[in-house]
Design a protein around this nucleic acid. Structure first.
Length: 564
RNA sequence: GCGCGGGUAGUCUAGUGGUAGGACAACGCCCUUCCGAGGCGUUAGCCCGGGUUCAAAUCCCGGCCCGCGCACCA
């Protein structure tokens, strides 16, 4: 096990879930410190992507009904067909194997694969025959209610809940684009073989923002602040660019300004959270790599001991999701966009003649009339009635030119989705923060978390583990807790040992109650990164700490230096 | 899911068929202290299940977990 993983387990950041029963791959427990860190990350995310956008956060069930995932496409495209060799036991994804061996695409259904295997006598590379193909769905299935129940799935992404509630959300925003809707929560994917510890989990934490925009207005007023920001991009042809975002959009490397805006914002967020800038890049999905719904997609990738891993996906999902739910549910998912001035439009329309239609189509006449109104005017019109094509005789309708006043148009909004994998980001922060250096000739382990991210922000330590040092230290601990600082009290072991303990878990500041405290009501304040110390009055502690914890200022600005 | 290698206190590790040992950590007491001091003591372990054997941490089989390679990662 790596040095960092050993520390994370020992100190209470991460644990294997179900450990006492032997554990199972793909699940982790967040210990007290890991949970604290991830909570800080979530709140920082809200600050960036909800509070400072025209956006809100909602919370939907983690169990979804089958209809949702049929409409979203997950029920089909999330299902792979697997084929297993009966000789050597190798398992392949059927579509990949067929494409590689036979060179064509196939339907992802068990029947189609079964047929191909038979028709081409497709064998494993070892020469063995394949067993009967089996479907493998990456979604966890469940049952809602007793008995046969209703089929449900654990959500594979938080996004769908937002699309489903779109009508309500659009009302909430008074039908005015653009607006964003966020959701932070758990999602589930039944991975075939999760590995690499926290990198591929079966239950994981996502923070997603669905930013709904007019299809022709993929811009953001905030982009002006980022136009000259330089980021590291790897485009879909694997070409690297260190380029200003404004130029990247102009050159067509990034599809639109809105994606570029979220790339910038994501970069800012990740760096504020503690990701190492030199280990961060944005990589564009290749044409054959994009999900079924996306028209452009950029991943934020960070370099870790597992290599470059994807931590954020920024996708332009177009109108895919809303259109699909509109189609499958019948609910109107459009937004009415008024024109500045109403426009007069002349157009030709089809007007049904009920006198003729009635006798001809009898009961179906009304339906025919309705279909007719939707048709493009023409001398020959064919309508589809209950799946049957019927030509409507020319004398049954008139074509007239009418003048209409149009006040606006209905559009299905497009959505840009920045989607964050909180578990991976949390882990990457830990790896990027983990460091060793030498203090007074001895090596120390230190977790250089950003001050505002640390799960324990301040440790209060009595120099001696007896009265009156202990009482005074406890008193200070309680005062700091009252102003919302995550503070711990610790009197166990020598003072040096305790400093190292808090260095290792990334606590930025230690306060020590010493002999002088009882002479002049001051304590020492120690900085984790430099190990320098100042003397400071107890009464100004909370103000100074709040200031320090929200900045990267040097403690030496705040008091007399006690140790360099 | 396949193949190879592993799994001994919280962590690291010794132990190849015959009483499971150490280091560090943690906890208690003593010492009293500004960068992992010292002394004494305590807690704590053979991944799970089956088999072979008089006897299994050790050998065999299955499972689970970890690592690596392959496959998978919409």
């Amino acid at each position: 096990m790596s040095e960092i993983m050993e520390m994370l387990i020992r100190r209470g950041f991460l644990w294997q879930s179900f450990e006492i029963y032997g554990g199972i791959a793909g699940f982790i427990d967040y210990g007290p410190l890991g949970n604290g860190l991830r909570r800080r990350l979530e709140n920082l995310w809200r600050e960036f992507f909800v509070v400072n956008e025209r956006a809100v956060e909602i919370d939907c069930p983690t169990i979804g009904i089958e209809e949702v995932y049929v409409a979203s496409g997950h029920a089909t495209s999330f299902t792979d067909v697997a084929i297993e060799c009966s000789e050597c036991g190798k398992v392949y994804r059927a579509d990949h194997y067929v494409k590689e061996k036979l060179g064509f695409e196939i339907d992802e259904s068990v029947e189609a694969v079964r047929e191909i295997l038979k028709e081409f006598d497709l064998r494993c590379e070892c020469g063995g025959k394949f067993k009967d193909p089996e479907p493998f769905n990456l979604m966890f299935e469940t049952k809602i209610g007793p008995g046969r129940g209703k089929k449900g799935y654990l959500r594979p992404e938080t996004a769908q809940g937002i699309f489903i509630a779109f009508r309500r959300l659009s009302d909430y925003f008074r039908d005015k684009l653009p607006f964003g809707v966020a959701q932070v929560g758990r999602s589930y994917r039944n991975e075939i073989s999760p590995r690499q510890g926290v990198i591929r989990l079966r239950e994981f934490n996502q923070a997603e923002l669905e930013y709904f925009v007019h299809p022709e207005k993929k811009t953001h007023p905030g982009f002006e602040n980022y136009r000259e920001k330089v980021v590291k991009l790897v485009d879909k042809r694997d070409v690297e660019h260190e380029i200003e975002l404004g130029k990247a959009v102009k050159k067509g490397i990034i599809l639109n300004e809105l994606i570029a805006y979220f790339i910038a914002k994501t970069e800012e967020f990740l760096i504020k959270a503690g990701i190492d800038r030199s280990k961060l890049r944005f990589r564009q999905h290749k044409d054959d790599e994009r999900a079924h719904y996306a028209c452009d997609c950029w991943d934020a990738e960070v370099l870790t001991s597992y290599g470059w891993i994807e931590v954020v996906g920024i996708a332009d999902r177009g109108c895919y999701d809303l259109s699909r739910h509109m189609e499958y549910s019948g609910e109107d998912m459009t937004v009415f966009i008024p024109y500045k001035e109403p426009v007069k439009v002349k157009k030709k329309v089809v007007i049904p003649d009920m006198k003729k239609l009635g006798p001809l189509f009898k009961k179906k006449a009304k339906k025919v009339a309705e279909e007719l109104k939707k048709m493009v005017p023409s001398e020959k019109i064919v309508v589809v009635l209950d799946g049957e094509e019927v030509e409507v005789p020319r004398e049954c309708y008139r074509i007239e030119e009418v003048e209409e006043i149009v006040h606006g148009e209905k559009v299905v909004p497009h959505v840009i989705e920045p989607s964050f994998g909180l578990d991976r980001i949390t882990y990457a922060i830990l790896e990027h923060s983990f460091d060793t250096d030498v203090v007074d000739g001895e090596e120390r382990k230190v977790l250089r978390l950003k001050r505002w991210m640390a799960p324990v922000q301040v440790a209060v330590l009595p120099l001696l583990s007896r009265e009156p040092f202990t009482s005074k230290a406890l008193e200070i601990t309680n005062e700091l807790k009252k102003v919302g600082i995550f503070t711990e009290y610790d009197d166990s072991g020598s003072i040096g040992r305790r400093y190292r303990r808090y260095d290792e878990i990334g606590t930025p500041f230690c306060i020590t109650v010493d002999h002088q405290t009882f002479e002049d009501e001051t304590v020492t304040l120690r900085d984790r990164d430099t190990t320098s110390q100042i003397r400071i009055a107890i009464k100004s502690l909370s103000d100074v700490l709040v200031n320090l914890l929200n900045s990267e200022r040097d403690i030496r600005e705040f008091g007399e230096v006690f140790r360099e």
